[in-house]
Amino acid sequence: MYNFAYHKPASLADAVKILSADPEARPLAGGQTLIPVLKQRLNKPSQLVDLAALGLAGIKVSPTALTIGAMTPHAAVARSAEVRKAIPGLADLASWIGDEQVRHRGTIGGSLANNDPSACYPAAVLALGATIKTDRREIAADDFFQGMFTTALEPGEIITEVAFPLPVEKSAYEKFRQPASRYAMVGVFVAKGPKGVRVAVTGAGQNGVFRVPEMEDALAKSWSPDSIAAIKVSPDGLVSDIHGSAAYRSHLITVMAKRAVAKAG
């Protein structure tokens, strides 16, 4: 990788200050995507700002929200009894991200800020209608994801926590893994909660995570796999690569959605 300057600020304000002053500076969360990218020399930041000392890790539950600190690693979410109880689909999703070593380092904040089109978390955040809290504001999931590797975050803006509204009545995630990388080739999160019935798809769309309104309407009327069995997402706009054509991904969206609904019970 190219060389860079490294900072590990002790306060959020300091982190924001460094990042805001230098457009070439990048925040470093768990690094499980950023470091491989740097190793391939696909990115040349002037400075890396390590967010590890800002106290952003942790899981809190209130009657109206499950809040996960931005620096909470996937493994902690997957193992959390509180998450399993409040939103079992979310804990399940976290247990499918990367592999165990990656889950020990990768964080929810890093995943969301990066918005990889094959990442798992965006599906849950969008389907559960979560709110992304940053050093300066709150952003609704519907406004946050703005296409492949693009989010509503401003330069220097740091995610601090993600709030999932409770109570969630049903939640489940089904993932068809890209066989080599194990990223989501098609990942579908289905949820029924304070924001209504929502279905979000990751891995398949050329513009990243998206919702499937036809499935949401059908599930709102009748929560069963059969009610969405005939609903197809058009292959137009879906990814086509050596692992699967757009037509195959389109088919898998329906299959994964059905299975997620069944899993959610």
Partner: peptide, 14 residues
Amino acid sequence: DSVKSCTMLAVQAE
């Protein structure tokens, strides 16, 4: 915890 030492900066291990 198991981690991939190729996907971590040495300075992060402070």
